[in-house]
Nucleic acid binder design. Structure first.
Length: 844
DNA sequence: TTCTATTGGCTTTTT
DNA sequence: GCCAATAGAA
């Protein structure tokens, strides 16, 4: 073990202890102590010699991957097809930079889109380097920005305790503004405005810059600008930033204060960005600012301020821009709707002249059949660089296709197939079901619950979006950031304390009239002349918050309490938990459990981050994403949207709802480039599968409680027919139950009539789906009502009748209480597992 | 003020 | 077919 000098934080230079890592990191200190990156350093790794134990970083990499790991220069673009091992390349590249002593860990900034990707990268770099990984910034765009903004809050004109508003919070604020301005009469909705503002902020526009280019004679435009202004003002007043502000404010900060930017430009010498195709303009600018060279006079300033600059300077006294590595695949760009600009990656070479480009096309994930399907689909997108994924692992199983009569029938097929796979030894955790819209989960969940299939929905209504969690969090936010009016209003009458909207308005106008904060107005409620009961309630709440704030005050002689202690105090004193527990609404029981879960989470947080405070906890919660809480070790099938599936992989993948109107989605049709983006989405879904891929659709789809006819997706015919084995093709599904006359359908030309290769005529049975009549004869019709069989007892040998599957014999009963499962051999429908409590069955 | 009943509006994807 | 917002009654 030895002590190395490391120019760690931009504001101070602390020595750092480097331990011998398990990988045998050589703890040899360089007396000069400056492996500072940048030009002038010898390229390449010192012959793998930096790696004890002889296992070179390059072992097991193909030539292109090696090149991507070894290349040294100002800019590198790695075009990485799906499953081509890009995370491996990135982590090895980072490990190489550090292992060869070209860079200190603290000089590395690796950016990903999700916390999960960041965690995985951190873990893998850690495995390669051991403890030496400490000090690196491996984080998402958003958390990197939060970190910078909190550190530089004063410069940015913010409180370092600023709150982060999620989209629901923003919409709440907008809703109030729209109501106050009566903008709803002009057709403004909170969601619509929120979208537009978000788009503008992603383009680094604000209300003023937008107003400059707007047509001011248009009342709609004028109103929008007014809403935008008010919104900005209110967030400022509440010391709050929305998601888009985090990026934009950081860029503004860097542009306004070159010396502040220089701190980070000096520190981060190697910047790596994952999923570059999904960057929007703000994110692009953030990276652009960070890689900007530092001018000599600012370098001199830094030097005088005691920052370590000498070894970084070039002949002119400037510090050259950091080296930038970006990884991406324009075929996997699926966030254009959120402002992602594919040009960022397409024009990278023009943007960073002299950039090196490495192409990774060998796929290590999927079988050739899956890749062929993916290639075939994506090749229909013109204006793309041709790129063909290939693999050495062989064809593998065919893609399985299935057309259900309804969404429930489709779900039943999936449940059955999953059980089959499981019986063959595929673990549940290696199976995933993808869909385009969250609404599709309903049918899947209904069937999965009945089939007693262990599953979990990734994303969807997230834990932290639940009302009761937001309530509890609002208490914490109100303590951390007293300026946050939104949080205060939220908890004002939760739990019910008799403070209605009338009182709320009174408080707000009192605050405005006297130029005090809402919180102060609450403290002064006594002088408002309201009823004693209401006044008392307000004062009690204000006192509670003040007491909680005191618990966190570093000046408090009683010592500083932890986040969990404060939350526990707030929950008890506010009686929030007590009220939920005592409620007669059965759902409140779950809500109470959720709040208790939150409390448990704060305890874990405190344990894992002993030095972190309330603000750190709130930040972490604000930035967790859907895919982040994905627990790989859990033995459950994962359900998620195609969007959250990006970056993940599973042995067996079910792509559901491959129908017109769903994929491509109705809404995308009107947008320019919409259908192409939807195709990429389909491509992303296909390429998640390692061994088995299932494509399923339904002939009718319930939507808004009405069943509508669904047509096979146009993308389906782009897959060569011989790659798919149809268990039930759209044509077969259609001809079920005899030959009824077929309705001519608009999409006829797409299917069957086109001469496909080989099995072309097989593909959809040659004909198109008719408009199916909602008949009860369909298999697996599921009634929406939740059945309750009460304490129906079954045991092996019993015969039962199932609404859909007919009669069968119970082979075995497993599980306990409400989770008892009957394993039934049906006479005609085969073997099924059923959850006894709710399955539509009766004993005979 | 709070609880209940009814309506209306809605669904694309998310850091 | 669900949720949230609204209106009306206690």
């Amino acid at each position: 073990m030895s002590t190395l000098f490391d120019p760690d934080e931009p504001t101070d230079s602390r020595p750092m202890i480097v331990h011998d890592g398990p990988g045998g990191f050589p703890a040899v200190s360089t007396p000069s102590g400056t492996p500072a990156g940048g030009p002038g350093l010898p390229g390449g790794l010192p012959g793998g010699g930096a790696w004890a134990g002889g296992d070179s970083l390059l072992d097991g990499l193909n030539p292109e991957q090696r090149e991507a790991v070894e290349y040294r220069g100002p800019a590198l673009l790695i075009v990485a097809g799906a499953g081509s091992g890009k995370t491996r390349v990135l982590t090895h590249r980072i490990a190489g930079l550090i292992g060869s002593r070209e860079a200190w860990p603290s000089q590395i900034l690796a950016i990903t889109f999700t916390n999960k990707a960041a965690a995985e990268m951190r873990e893998r770099v850690g495995a390669l380097l051991g403890q030496a990984a400490t000090g690196m910034w491996i984080s998402t765009f958003h958390s990197a920005c939060v970190r910078i903004l909190r550190a530089e809050a004063e410069r940015a004109g913010l409180s370092s305790t600023f709150t982060i508003y999620d989209s629901a919070d923003s919409r709440n604020v907008l809703k109030r503004i729209i109501k106050e301005l009566s903008a709803d009469t002009l057709g403004f909705t909170a969601a619509g405005v929120s979208n537009k503002i978000s788009k503008l902020k992603n383009e680094l526009a604000d209300a003023d810059s937008y107003a400059r280019n707007a047509n001011l004679s248009d009342p709609q435009e004028l109103m929008f600008i007014e809403i935008f202004r008010q919104y900005t003002r209110r967030l400022r007043a509440a010391q709050a930033l929305d998601f888009d502000d985090l990026l934009a404010e950081t860029v503004y900060l860097f542009r306004a204060f070159p010396a502040t930017a220089a701190l980070y430009q000096r520190r981060f010498r190697h910047i790596l960005v994952d999923e570059y195709q999904d960057t929007n303009h703000a994110q692009y600018s953030f990276i652009k600012e960070l890689t900007r060279p530092i001018e000599p006079h600012i370098v001199a300033e830094l030097g005088t301020a005691g920052h370590h600059v000498r070894s970084l300077q070039d002949a002119s006294g400037a510090i050259p821009g950091a080296s930038l590595t970006v990884v991406g695949d324009s075929d996997q760009s699926i966030y254009a709707f959120r402002g992602a600009d594919i040009r960022n990656i397409v024009e990278f070479e023009r943007d960073y002249p002299g950039a090196k480009v490495v192409l990774l096309e060998q796929n290590y994930r999927s079988t050739q059949n899956i890749l062929s399907a993916a290639n075939a689909v994506i090749s229909n997108n013109f204006d793309r660089k041709d790129k063909k994924l290939w693999t050495a692992v062989g064809d593998g199983a065919k893609i399985i296709g299935y057309t259900g009569y309804s969404g429930h029938d489709e779900a039943q097929f999936i449940a059955d197939e999953i059980e089959k796979l499981h019986a063959e030894g595929v673990a549940y955790r290696d199976i995933a079901v993808f869909y385009r819209t969250n609404a599709q989960t309903r049918a899947l969940e209904e069937i999965f619950v009945r089939a007693a299939l262990p599953y979990r929905v990734v994303g969807g209504t997230k834990f932290y979006e639940r009302a009761e969690i937001k309530d509890a969090m609002a208490y914490l936010i109100a303590v951390a950031n007293p300026a946050d009016e939104l949080a205060l209003r939220r908890i004002l009458n939760t739990p019910k304390r008799g403070i209605g909207p009338a009182t709320e308005t009174q408080l707000a106008s009192f605050a405005e009239a006297n130029g005090i904060s809402f919180r102060q107005a609450m403290r002064d409620a006594g002088s408002l002349g309201m009823g004693p009961k209401v006044t008392g309630a307000i004062l009690k709440l204000a006192k509670l918050l003040d007491e909680a704030a005191l618990m966190l005050d570093p000046e408090n002689p009683a010592g500083v309490s932890s986040v969990s202690e404060v939350l526990g105090f707030l929950l008890t004193e506010s009686t929030l938990l007590e009220v939920l527990r005592g409620s007669r609404d059965p759902q409140d029981e779950t809500r109470a459990e959720n709040v208790e879960e939150l409390l448990a989470q704060t305890k874990d947080f405190v344990k894992e981050n002993p030095d972190a405070g309330l603000i750190d906890f709130l930040t972490q919660v604000s930035l967790v994403a859907a895919a982040d809480d994905l627990d790989d070790s859990s033995g459950t099938v994962s359900l998620m949207t195609l969007h959250t599936a990006k970056g993940l992989e599973y042995d067996s993948v079910f792509l559901t709802g491959i129908e017109e109107g769903l994929l491509p989605h109705q809404m995308s049709a009107s947008e320019p480039g919409g259908p192409a983006e939807e195709r990429r989405l389909f491509y992303v879904g296909i390429t998640r599968a390692r061994k088995r891929l299932y494509l399923s659709l339904a002939m009718t789809r319930a939507q808004f409680g009405e069943t509508n006819v669904a047509m096979p997706s146009r993308y389906l015919q782009e897959i060569p027919g011989d790659l798919i084995e149809w268990r039930q093709s759209p044509g077969m599904a259609n001809s079920r139950g005899g030959t009824q006359p077929r309705a001519l359908n608009a999409r006829r030309d797409g299917f069957g009539s086109r001469g496909g290769s080989g099995s072309g005529s097989e593909r959809f049975g040659g004909e198109l789906p008719p408009a199916p009549k909602p008949k009860t004869e369909w298999a697996n019709r599921v009634t929406a009502q939740v059945r309750d069989n009460g304490d129906l007892t079954l045991e092996a040998g019993d015969r039962i009748r199932h609404v859909d599957f007919g009669e069968g014999r119970v082979n075995q009963v497993t599980g306990e209480g409400t989770k008892r499962i009957a394993h039934v051999q049906f006479d005609t429908a085969g073997a099924k597992k059923l959850l006894i409590k709710i399955a539509p069955i009766e004993k005979i």
